[in-house]
Amino acid sequence: MTIEALKQQLKEQIIEALNLQDTRPADIDDNAPLFGEGLGLDSIDSLELMVLLERNYQIKVEDPREGRKILQSVQSMAEFILAQQLA
């Protein structure tokens, strides 16, 4: 899967997992921060996104501090997933 397709898929999965009802994939900028300002997500969302990675991509993030780095943006999530798949 190309990174572009992966990012699109991730956006759809994020919207569904976090029940972001009024958000469409196009509304999420690849590089916008997911937490705080950007989408306004919080620490519980970050745990939910780690579950998303585990359920959909079989990637287990144990350390919440590490998770925070991976979950900075859709771009960082996609890059991390691709790197894991190559590894």
Partner: peptide, 10 residues
């Protein structure tokens, strides 16, 4: 369902 793995805390 998920056999005690990958659980949402919400």
């Amino acid at each position: 369902t998920y056999h005690e793995t990958a659980l949402n805390p919400t």
